[in-house]
């Protein structure tokens, strides 16, 4: 039982790493808190649901589409909202208010368009995608359905979401450390004023980071019907809170910290469910308080907030 709980916690946590990754990137680059992060996740979830309902598009195939679409949404949204925000005296605080308002608007509009009831995509779809991928390799034979890892059986959706999360982290690292734009992004993350004074177009760099941030949220949303039971227009708030806990645990502004934060959250959550189930949903808040008291910069933090 303990082994299963731990493995499940790691897989579950990897998914929440993906969920928190975009929020962390946006905070790291712009020092603003995107409280509508979970609502972009919700929109990604409805995109996957809508395409599946319309023509049974497998959610895995929706991932590149969701990424492209939300990058295209994110770029103009950045220029509409963020530059004025960054020019304010206290952009961090104002961002909370502004994005809370945006969150409410997105939720209300989604409710009107999609209805308020729970919606899902059949659980076997990700299993089919995984089996289809594995069977591409010569000699491989895998049936769609639960996946066995070290003698323990897990839903295929968890494995696919975990792999997608690792891939997203890898891509983000390649972007940040192997591309010129990534280097510029890191420069802005380190010191926005200094980056500006060296001639870096900080708004262009930030806009791309913002767009990638919400696109990552949307990719997390594609997996939400499988990881969170079902989707509703109101699911964004809870996703934002959990994401926030994950990135604070790991450390604000550090993508690798988000992975660690996600795994700590996932394992702790599953342990709570197994041994103290009634209190499991208090976990994000308990971890937040504990981390802020013991190590305010997060597990992998280097005093980012004080830099």
């Amino acid at each position: 039982m303990l082994a299963y709980t731990l493995f499940a916690g790691i897989l579950f946590g990897l998914y929440f790493s993906l969920v928190g990754l975009g929020l962390n990137l946006v905070f790291g680059v712009m020092r603003i808190v995107n409280l509508a992060h979970g609502d972009f996740l919700m929109l990604g979830a409805y995109l996957a649901f809508w395409l599946y309902t319309l023509s049974e598009v497998n959610p895995v195939a929706v991932i590149p589409l969701a990424f492209a679409l939300f990058v295209l949404i994110g770029l103009p949204l950045y220029y509409i909202l963020v530059p004025r925000l960054l020019a304010a005296n206290d952009p961090e605080m104002l961002s909370i208010i502004l994005f809370f308002g945006l969150s409410q608007v997105i939720e209300a509009l989604a409710g009107i368009v999609f209805g308020r009831s729970e919606r899902s995509i059949p659980g076997g779809e990700l299993g089919r995608a995984l089996a289809g991928f594995v069977n591409l390799f010569p000699g491989a034979k895998m049936e769609s359905g639960p996946v066995e890892i070290f003698g323990q059986t897990f839903p295929a959706a968890w494995v696919v979401a975990g792999l997608a999360s690792l891939l997203a982290v890898l891509c983000l690292y390649v972007y940040l450390y192997r591309t010129r734009l990534g280097a510029l992004t890191r420069a802005v993350m380190a010191d926005r004023e200094e980056a500006l004074s060296t001639g870096i177009d900080t708004h262009r760099v930030s806009a791309i980071a913002f767009a990638i941030g919400i696109a990552l949220a949307a990719i997390g949303g594609v997996f939400a019907p499988f990881m969170l039971g079902s989707i509703t227009p109101a699911m964004g708030v809870e996703a934002t809170v959990t994401s926030f806990a994950v990135i604070v645990i790991g450390s604000l502004g550090n993508p690798l910290g988000t992975v660690l934060g996600g795994i700590v959250y996932g394992v702790s959550y599953m342990l709570m469910q197994s041994y103290l189930s009634s209190w499991a949903n208090l976990l994000p808040y308990l971890l937040l308080i504990a981390i802020l008291l013991v190590r305010p910069s997060g597990l992998l933090g280097r005093q980012v907030r004080l830099a």
């Binding site: 709980t5 579950f12 039971g229 079902s230 809870e238 469910q273 949903n281």
Partner: peptide, 8 residues
């Protein structure tokens, strides 16, 4: 608010 029951 529980939305995942796999471990349970």
């Amino acid at each position: 608010e529980t939305s995942n029951y796999t471990v349970l």
